[in-house]
Design a protein around this nucleic acid. Structure first.
Lengths: 231, 231
DNA sequence: ATAAATTTAGACACTCTTGTCCAATTCGTC
DNA sequence: GACGAATTGGACAAGAGTGTCTAAATTTAT
């Protein structure tokens, strides 16, 4: 029996053959560049880790520097996508403000910061940022330059709806994430990945403090908030 | 006229000759290791930046790795000294709580974090931490392992004296510094050094939020606090 | 099954870096 | 000024990494 030889969409389902090598190289290169730094990484290492011959890497990417740039661009894109996806889960109409903000903080940390991609991108920026100004300026525009305002806007909306008492939403947004991360800093320093408990702990303490600072004195009573929802 | 040939204490006054080269090498090596990472740095670069011949570096330190370890040890010691010195300026008996805490936050940032040594140590830990586990474990014990409790103790005392309303002083200490740094993170990322204004801004906003969360509702009236001071 | 495209292993030239050796020079001290 | 210690520059061998080239093997699609 012969299958219809329809052009089965070569979409992004199970990367095989040529494409499989491509992603395998990207993965390995990210890992190695991150672990060894640009100067410390060597192509043979990446080839071995990717299960590919050295020549194949040169065929795909030209040279070490081009490969590096491709990795950073890729990580930047994926991270930004992840951050925006997570921002879209911000609790605009919270049922339980504290629980909902803790949930958001945990998602932010787990999916964007502690994440493989997040960890790698952060480290590459810190390590090689000064050597590739344009590349990382680009990241800055596409990443922080767009994500911070987006998060701040969500907090502004929450404040406007009467759930929070915030003067400057930009400051509040930065402080929110700083608090959510406060207890993970030391772990990050040495490249470690905090486990779920640590993330939850830090988020819980952080949000609790955040609400002591910005929460309404008399916790917003849902029944009295109906007038604001139309704004 | 002949000076008395007393053994003028070869203390640490004006490093000259042999010693001058030593510090010049340490400075340059710190700079270069930090900028280029361990693998990317080369001895000739360091020699040039130190204004010294390559051989002199080998005479002083043996090899590249020993030099690197010496640099990290040196930075660790100096940074810890700076941190403890700064901790000792913590406002135990604040006149104006907000202003005094802002002052402390600014000193902490300026003298320990944004500092040349602080910047270098932080970057070296992030970059090479995984490659030298023992070396950086040592730092962790001597640094964070001793400084966090010291800071937490100061906050505990402040709370006990009635100036703050704190449950867990360890958490509060970490959150205090996280808040004080909240607006400097992006600058740190790319190896930049925030200017005095940015530091003051971040500290001011951070402390304000910290006090909204942990300050006494009715600011501690000094005249009513006399009973606690003897504890 | 066959043709085209891709991958592979290995050899290769080239460059860069480390760490050593040494003779000449400079520096600090008496 | 003279002595000993430290510094210098330059040459050097050994090793490691990059990027190219090749012919053979393998995969993919027709």
């Amino acid at each position: 029996m012969v299958f219809m030889k329809v052009n089965v969409s070569p979409d992004t389902i199970p990367p095989r053959g040529h494409e499989a090598k491509r992603v395998s190289i990207m993965d390995a290169a990210g890992e190695v560049f991150c672990r060894e730094s640009f100067a410390g990484a060597n192509i043979d290492m990446i080839a071995a880790e990717a299960g590919v011959s050295r020549q194949t890497i040169y065929n795909h990417h030209g040279d070490k520097e081009k490969l590096f740039v491709a990795i950073v661009r890729d990580l930047t894109d994926r991270c930004n996508a992840g951050i925006f996806a997570t921002i879209s889960t911000f609790p605009d109409q919270p049922k339980d403000l504290e629980a909902d903000l803790i949930g958001f903080a945990v998602r932010m940390n787990r999916n964007c910061i502690c994440n493989r991609d997040g960890k790698f991108l952060r480290k590459l920026i810190q390590t090689e940022g000064e050597r590739y100004p344009e590349l990382f300026a680009e990241w800055r525009e596409q990443g922080p330059g767009r994500t911070w305002p987006a998060i701040a806007a969500r907090f502004a909306r929450l404040a406007h709806a009467g759930f929070l008492d915030i003067d400057d939403p930009d400051v509040a947004a930065r402080q929110f994430l700083a608090l959510a991360n406060a207890e993970l800093q030391t772990t990050f320093m040495l490249g470690g990945t905090p486990d779920d408990d640590e993330v939850l702990q830090s988020a819980t303490h952080g949000v609790r403090t955040f609400l002591r600072a910005f929460g309404k004195r008399q916790p917003a009573d849902a029944s009295k908030q109906s007038a604001v929802t139309s704004a």
